[in-house]
Protein backbone atom coordinates (compact mmCIF):
# COMPACT_ATOMS: atom_id res chain seq x y z
CA UNK A 1 0.00 0.00 0.00
CA UNK A 2 1.33 3.41 -0.97
CA UNK A 3 -1.18 5.77 0.61
CA UNK A 4 -3.93 5.16 3.10
CA UNK A 5 -6.12 8.05 4.17
CA UNK A 6 -8.37 7.55 7.17
CA UNK A 7 -11.22 9.85 8.21
CA UNK A 8 -9.42 12.68 6.53
CA UNK A 9 -10.98 16.14 6.56
CA UNK A 10 -9.73 19.42 5.21
CA UNK A 11 -11.57 22.63 5.93
CA UNK A 12 -10.97 26.19 4.80
CA UNK A 13 -12.72 28.95 6.74
CA UNK A 14 -15.20 26.45 8.16
CA UNK A 15 -15.98 24.98 4.71
CA UNK A 16 -15.18 21.29 4.31
CA UNK A 17 -13.47 20.74 0.96
CA UNK A 18 -12.31 17.18 1.59
CA UNK A 19 -14.03 14.50 3.66
CA UNK A 20 -12.66 11.02 3.00
CA UNK A 21 -13.66 8.10 5.19
CA UNK A 22 -11.00 5.82 3.71
CA UNK A 23 -8.96 5.88 0.56
CA UNK A 24 -6.20 3.43 -0.35
CA UNK A 25 -3.88 3.81 -3.31
CA UNK A 26 -1.51 1.12 -4.53
CA UNK A 27 2.22 1.35 -5.15
CA UNK A 28 3.60 1.19 -8.68
CA UNK A 29 0.24 1.95 -10.31
CA UNK A 30 -1.10 4.77 -12.39
CA UNK A 31 -4.09 6.24 -10.57
CA UNK A 32 -6.38 8.89 -11.95
CA UNK A 33 -8.44 11.22 -9.77
CA UNK A 34 -11.57 12.50 -11.44
CA UNK A 35 -14.25 14.89 -10.37
CA UNK A 36 -15.78 18.24 -11.24
CA UNK A 37 -14.09 21.52 -10.35
CA UNK A 38 -14.14 22.03 -6.60
CA UNK A 39 -14.34 18.28 -5.89
CA UNK A 40 -11.15 18.47 -3.81
CA UNK A 41 -8.71 16.88 -6.27
CA UNK A 42 -5.99 19.53 -5.95
CA UNK A 43 -6.39 19.70 -2.16
CA UNK A 44 -5.97 15.93 -2.00
CA UNK A 45 -2.83 16.10 -4.17
CA UNK A 46 -1.33 18.79 -1.91
CA UNK A 47 -1.95 16.61 1.15
CA UNK A 48 -0.43 13.59 -0.61
CA UNK A 49 2.56 15.78 -1.57
CA UNK A 50 2.92 16.70 2.15
CA UNK A 51 2.61 20.39 1.27
CA UNK A 52 -0.38 20.91 3.52
CA UNK A 53 -1.75 18.86 6.36
CA UNK A 54 -5.32 17.70 6.88
CA UNK A 55 -7.55 19.50 9.37
CA UNK A 56 -8.24 16.11 10.95
CA UNK A 57 -7.72 12.44 10.21
CA UNK A 58 -4.69 10.36 9.32
CA UNK A 59 -2.43 10.01 6.34
CA UNK A 60 -0.38 6.82 6.08
CA UNK A 61 2.44 6.63 3.57
CA UNK A 62 4.36 3.41 3.02
CA UNK A 63 2.83 1.93 6.18
CA UNK A 64 3.99 4.89 8.28
CA UNK A 65 1.73 7.52 9.82
CA UNK A 66 2.61 10.98 8.55
CA UNK A 67 3.19 13.67 11.15
CA UNK A 68 2.63 17.01 9.44
CA UNK A 69 4.03 18.98 12.38
CA UNK A 70 7.62 17.76 12.34
CA UNK A 71 10.60 18.86 10.28
CA UNK A 72 11.01 15.24 9.16
CA UNK A 73 8.43 16.06 6.52
CA UNK A 74 11.25 17.06 4.17
CA UNK A 75 12.35 13.40 3.96
CA UNK A 76 8.86 12.41 2.83
CA UNK A 77 8.67 15.33 0.41
CA UNK A 78 11.84 14.08 -1.22
CA UNK A 79 10.02 10.84 -2.09
CA UNK A 80 6.97 12.54 -3.60
CA UNK A 81 6.84 15.36 -6.11
CA UNK A 82 3.86 17.42 -7.23
CA UNK A 83 3.67 18.95 -10.70
CA UNK A 84 0.99 21.59 -10.61
CA UNK A 85 -1.69 22.22 -13.20
CA UNK A 86 -0.08 25.46 -14.28
CA UNK A 87 3.50 24.73 -13.44
CA UNK A 88 5.85 27.56 -12.79
CA UNK A 89 9.50 27.52 -13.77
CA UNK A 90 12.18 29.54 -12.01
CA UNK A 91 13.22 32.59 -14.02
CA UNK A 92 16.40 31.16 -15.36
CA UNK A 93 17.50 28.73 -18.08
CA UNK A 94 15.70 25.44 -18.65
CA UNK A 95 18.67 23.32 -17.58
CA UNK A 96 19.05 25.22 -14.31
CA UNK A 97 15.41 24.43 -13.47
CA UNK A 98 16.02 20.73 -13.96
CA UNK A 99 19.34 20.93 -12.10
CA UNK A 100 17.78 22.61 -9.03
CA UNK A 101 16.55 19.40 -7.34
CA UNK A 102 19.91 17.79 -8.09
CA UNK A 103 21.79 20.73 -6.58
CA UNK A 104 19.81 20.73 -3.34
CA UNK A 105 20.38 16.98 -3.06
CA UNK A 106 24.12 17.56 -3.28
CA UNK A 107 24.64 15.78 -6.62
CA UNK A 108 28.15 16.72 -7.80
CA UNK A 109 28.21 19.37 -10.53
CA UNK A 110 30.07 17.08 -12.90
CA UNK A 111 27.21 14.57 -12.81
CA UNK A 112 24.43 17.15 -12.99
CA UNK A 113 24.96 18.02 -16.67
CA UNK A 114 24.58 14.44 -17.87
CA UNK A 115 21.50 13.85 -15.72
CA UNK A 116 19.87 17.05 -16.93
CA UNK A 117 20.51 16.00 -20.56
CA UNK A 118 18.96 12.59 -19.91
CA UNK A 119 15.86 13.97 -18.18
CA UNK A 120 15.28 16.63 -20.82
CA UNK A 121 15.67 13.94 -23.47
CA UNK A 122 13.08 11.79 -21.70
CA UNK A 123 10.46 14.56 -21.96
CA UNK A 124 11.52 15.49 -25.48
CA UNK A 125 12.95 18.87 -24.48
CA UNK A 126 16.63 18.22 -25.11
CA UNK A 127 16.81 20.97 -27.74
CA UNK A 128 15.59 23.55 -25.21
CA UNK A 129 18.40 23.00 -22.70
CA UNK A 130 19.69 26.58 -22.84
CA UNK A 131 16.34 28.25 -23.55
CA UNK A 132 14.93 30.82 -21.18
CA UNK A 133 12.36 28.99 -19.10
CA UNK A 134 9.81 31.80 -19.18
CA UNK A 135 9.79 31.92 -22.97
CA UNK A 136 8.42 28.38 -23.29
CA UNK A 137 4.85 27.55 -24.30
CA UNK A 138 2.39 25.98 -21.82
CA UNK A 139 3.02 22.44 -23.05
CA UNK A 140 6.78 22.87 -23.08
CA UNK A 141 6.68 24.36 -19.58
CA UNK A 142 4.68 21.36 -18.38
CA UNK A 143 7.21 18.95 -19.86
CA UNK A 144 10.16 20.78 -18.29
CA UNK A 145 8.27 20.78 -14.96
CA UNK A 146 7.88 17.00 -15.26
CA UNK A 147 11.62 16.68 -16.01
CA UNK A 148 12.34 18.82 -12.93
CA UNK A 149 10.04 16.57 -10.91
CA UNK A 150 11.83 13.47 -12.19
CA UNK A 151 15.15 15.03 -11.18
CA UNK A 152 13.95 14.47 -7.60
CA UNK A 153 14.13 10.70 -8.24
CA UNK A 154 10.67 10.40 -6.70
CA UNK A 155 8.87 7.23 -5.73
CA UNK A 156 5.61 8.99 -6.47
CA UNK A 157 4.79 11.73 -8.96
CA UNK A 158 1.57 13.66 -8.55
CA UNK A 159 0.33 15.46 -11.65
CA UNK A 160 -2.47 17.99 -11.38
CA UNK A 161 -4.32 18.03 -14.70
CA UNK A 162 -1.09 17.57 -16.65
CA UNK A 163 -2.71 17.92 -20.06
CA UNK A 164 -5.08 20.79 -19.32
CA UNK A 165 -4.26 23.91 -21.34
CA UNK A 166 -1.85 22.12 -23.70
CA UNK A 167 -2.23 21.31 -27.38
CA UNK A 168 -2.83 17.82 -28.77
CA UNK A 169 0.83 17.25 -29.64
CA UNK A 170 1.91 18.03 -26.08
CA UNK A 171 -0.98 15.98 -24.66
CA UNK A 172 0.28 12.92 -26.52
CA UNK A 173 3.84 13.62 -25.38
CA UNK A 174 2.80 13.98 -21.72
CA UNK A 175 0.68 10.81 -21.81
CA UNK A 176 3.66 8.93 -23.26
CA UNK A 177 5.89 10.29 -20.46
CA UNK A 178 3.36 9.15 -17.81
CA UNK A 179 3.38 5.62 -19.19
CA UNK A 180 7.16 5.53 -19.61
CA UNK A 181 8.04 6.73 -16.11
CA UNK A 182 5.61 4.24 -14.63
CA UNK A 183 6.70 1.26 -16.71
CA UNK A 184 10.45 1.91 -17.05
CA UNK A 185 11.23 3.65 -13.77
CA UNK A 186 8.53 2.04 -11.62
CA UNK A 187 7.34 5.42 -10.35
CA UNK A 188 3.79 5.49 -8.97
CA UNK A 189 1.79 8.11 -10.85
CA UNK A 190 -1.30 9.83 -9.52
CA UNK A 191 -2.89 12.36 -11.83
CA UNK A 192 -6.09 14.37 -11.93
CA UNK A 193 -8.07 14.81 -15.10
CA UNK A 194 -11.50 15.70 -16.44
CA UNK A 195 -10.90 13.52 -19.46
CA UNK A 196 -12.66 10.17 -18.99
CA UNK A 197 -11.04 8.73 -22.10
CA UNK A 198 -7.56 9.71 -20.92
CA UNK A 199 -8.23 8.20 -17.50
CA UNK A 200 -9.42 4.88 -18.91
CA UNK A 201 -6.50 4.80 -21.36
CA UNK A 202 -3.74 5.49 -18.82
CA UNK A 203 -4.91 4.57 -15.35
CA UNK A 204 -4.88 1.21 -13.59
CA UNK A 205 -7.35 2.56 -11.08
CA UNK A 206 -9.63 5.59 -11.03
CA UNK A 207 -11.02 7.43 -8.02
CA UNK A 208 -14.04 9.68 -8.49
CA UNK A 209 -14.41 12.63 -6.14
CA UNK A 210 -17.52 14.68 -5.71
CA UNK A 211 -17.83 17.55 -3.22
CA UNK A 212 -14.80 16.28 -1.32
CA UNK A 213 -16.03 12.70 -1.00
CA UNK A 214 -15.24 9.56 -2.92
CA UNK A 215 -18.23 9.18 -5.22
CA UNK A 216 -19.83 5.78 -5.65
CA UNK A 217 -21.12 6.54 -9.11
CA UNK A 218 -19.08 7.14 -12.19
CA UNK A 219 -18.20 10.77 -12.67
CA UNK A 220 -19.82 11.25 -16.00
CA UNK A 221 -22.99 12.66 -17.46
CA UNK A 222 -23.36 15.06 -14.54
CA UNK A 223 -26.01 17.75 -15.01
CA UNK A 224 -27.67 20.41 -12.93
CA UNK A 225 -31.44 20.39 -12.72
CA UNK A 226 -34.52 21.03 -10.69
CA UNK A 227 -36.80 18.35 -9.23
CA UNK A 228 -40.53 18.87 -9.13
CA UNK A 229 -43.50 16.58 -8.59
CA UNK A 230 -45.98 16.14 -11.46
CA UNK A 231 -49.80 15.72 -11.23
CA UNK A 232 -49.46 11.98 -10.72
CA UNK A 233 -47.10 12.44 -7.80
CA UNK A 234 -44.06 11.30 -9.83
CA UNK A 235 -40.76 13.10 -9.41
CA UNK A 236 -39.24 14.64 -12.49
CA UNK A 237 -35.91 16.37 -12.91
CA UNK A 238 -35.97 19.24 -15.35
CA UNK A 239 -32.61 19.76 -16.97
CA UNK A 240 -31.28 22.55 -19.11
CA UNK A 241 -33.35 23.26 -22.28
CA UNK A 242 -36.41 21.74 -20.62
CA UNK A 243 -35.37 18.09 -20.84
CA UNK A 244 -37.43 16.09 -18.32
CA UNK A 245 -36.25 12.89 -16.66
CA UNK A 246 -38.25 10.67 -14.33
CA UNK A 247 -36.20 10.10 -11.20
CA UNK A 248 -36.49 8.12 -8.00
CA UNK A 249 -35.55 10.52 -5.26
CA UNK A 250 -36.88 12.05 -2.09
CA UNK A 251 -35.21 15.35 -2.93
CA UNK A 252 -36.84 18.37 -4.47
CA UNK A 253 -35.66 21.72 -5.74
CA UNK A 254 -32.22 22.30 -7.31
CA UNK A 255 -30.09 19.14 -7.59
CA UNK A 256 -27.34 17.57 -9.64
CA UNK A 257 -27.77 14.20 -11.29
CA UNK A 258 -25.42 11.69 -12.86
CA UNK A 259 -26.47 9.17 -15.49
CA UNK A 260 -24.49 5.90 -15.63
CA UNK A 261 -23.30 5.67 -19.25
CA UNK A 262 -23.15 1.89 -19.09
CA UNK A 263 -26.82 1.60 -18.13
CA UNK A 264 -28.23 3.75 -20.93
CA UNK A 265 -29.86 1.74 -23.75
CA UNK A 266 -29.28 2.75 -27.35
CA UNK A 267 -31.50 1.73 -30.32
CA UNK A 268 -31.86 2.53 -34.00
CA UNK A 269 -35.63 3.03 -33.79
CA UNK A 270 -38.33 3.71 -31.25
CA UNK A 271 -39.47 0.08 -30.93
CA UNK A 272 -39.94 -0.56 -27.22
CA UNK A 273 -39.64 3.18 -26.95
CA UNK A 274 -42.66 3.50 -24.78
CA UNK A 275 -40.38 3.18 -21.76
CA UNK A 276 -39.86 6.22 -19.57
CA UNK A 277 -36.95 8.56 -20.20
CA UNK A 278 -36.63 7.78 -23.92
CA UNK A 279 -35.18 10.46 -26.13
CA UNK A 280 -34.34 10.86 -29.80
CA UNK A 281 -30.79 12.03 -30.51
CA UNK A 282 -27.99 12.25 -33.00
CA UNK A 283 -24.71 10.35 -32.78
CA UNK A 284 -21.96 12.97 -32.69
CA UNK A 285 -18.85 11.11 -31.47
CA UNK A 286 -17.55 7.55 -31.27
CA UNK A 287 -14.52 6.35 -29.31
CA UNK A 288 -13.02 2.88 -29.14
CA UNK A 289 -12.43 1.87 -25.50
CA UNK A 290 -10.99 -1.62 -25.22
CA UNK A 291 -14.07 -3.93 -25.10
CA UNK A 292 -16.58 -1.11 -25.41
CA UNK A 293 -17.52 1.77 -27.64
CA UNK A 294 -18.23 5.17 -26.16
CA UNK A 295 -20.94 7.02 -28.08
CA UNK A 296 -21.70 10.66 -27.49
CA UNK A 297 -25.30 11.40 -28.38
CA UNK A 298 -26.85 14.83 -28.63
CA UNK A 299 -30.35 14.65 -27.10
CA UNK A 300 -30.48 18.36 -26.38
CA UNK A 301 -27.64 17.75 -23.98
CA UNK A 302 -24.56 15.66 -24.85
CA UNK A 303 -25.01 12.24 -23.24
CA UNK A 304 -22.21 9.68 -23.10
CA UNK A 305 -23.21 6.04 -23.58
CA UNK A 306 -21.02 2.95 -23.19
CA UNK A 307 -21.99 0.02 -25.39
CA UNK A 308 -20.29 -3.42 -25.64
CA UNK A 309 -18.54 -3.73 -29.00
CA UNK A 310 -20.62 -6.73 -30.09
CA UNK A 311 -23.88 -4.90 -29.37
CA UNK A 312 -22.68 -1.78 -31.12
CA UNK A 313 -21.62 -3.81 -34.21
CA UNK A 314 -25.15 -5.22 -34.52
CA UNK A 315 -26.65 -1.75 -34.43
CA UNK A 316 -24.63 -0.73 -37.51
CA UNK A 317 -24.54 2.95 -36.60
CA UNK A 318 -22.52 5.63 -38.31
CA UNK A 319 -21.68 9.18 -37.38
CA UNK A 320 -24.69 11.48 -37.56
CA UNK A 321 -27.16 8.58 -37.30
CA UNK A 322 -30.45 9.14 -35.54
CA UNK A 323 -30.76 6.98 -32.41
CA UNK A 324 -33.09 6.51 -29.47
CA UNK A 325 -31.75 6.47 -25.92
CA UNK A 326 -33.48 5.13 -22.85
CA UNK A 327 -32.19 6.12 -19.40
CA UNK A 328 -33.66 3.73 -16.80
CA UNK A 329 -34.59 5.40 -13.55
CA UNK A 330 -32.03 3.17 -11.77
CA UNK A 331 -29.25 4.65 -13.94
CA UNK A 332 -29.89 8.14 -12.57
CA UNK A 333 -28.34 9.15 -9.29
CA UNK A 334 -29.50 12.36 -7.63
CA UNK A 335 -27.03 14.33 -5.50
Amino acid sequence: MLYELRNLKKTYDGRTVLDLEQLCLDRGKITSLMGPNGAGKTTLLEIMAFLSGPSSGEVWFEQGKVDFTTEKLIHLRRKVVLVEQQSILFTTRVWKNVAFPLRIRGVPRARQAGMVEELLGLVGMGAFRDARAHKLSGGETQRVAIARGLACFPEVILLDEPTANVDVENQIAIERIIQEINQKKGISVIFTTHNMIQASRLADQTVFLYEGRVARSIYENIFSGYIETDRNGCKQCILQYGLRLDVDSQKSGPVRISIDPGAVKIRRDQSNGSAENTFKGKLIQLTDEQSRVRALVDIGIPLSVLVPKAVFGNLDLGMGAEVWLTCPVESIEVF
Binding site: E46, V80, V81, S87, F90, R148
Partner: peptide, 9 residues
Protein backbone atom coordinates in the same frame (compact mmCIF):
# COMPACT_ATOMS: atom_id res chain seq x y z
CA UNK B 1 5.25 25.23 -3.34
CA UNK B 2 7.54 24.22 -6.20
CA UNK B 3 10.67 24.68 -4.11
CA UNK B 4 9.15 22.66 -1.26
CA UNK B 5 7.90 19.84 -3.44
CA UNK B 6 11.24 19.35 -5.17
CA UNK B 7 12.74 18.87 -1.72
CA UNK B 8 14.11 22.27 -0.72
CA UNK B 9 14.41 23.02 2.99
Amino acid sequence: KTALTVGAN
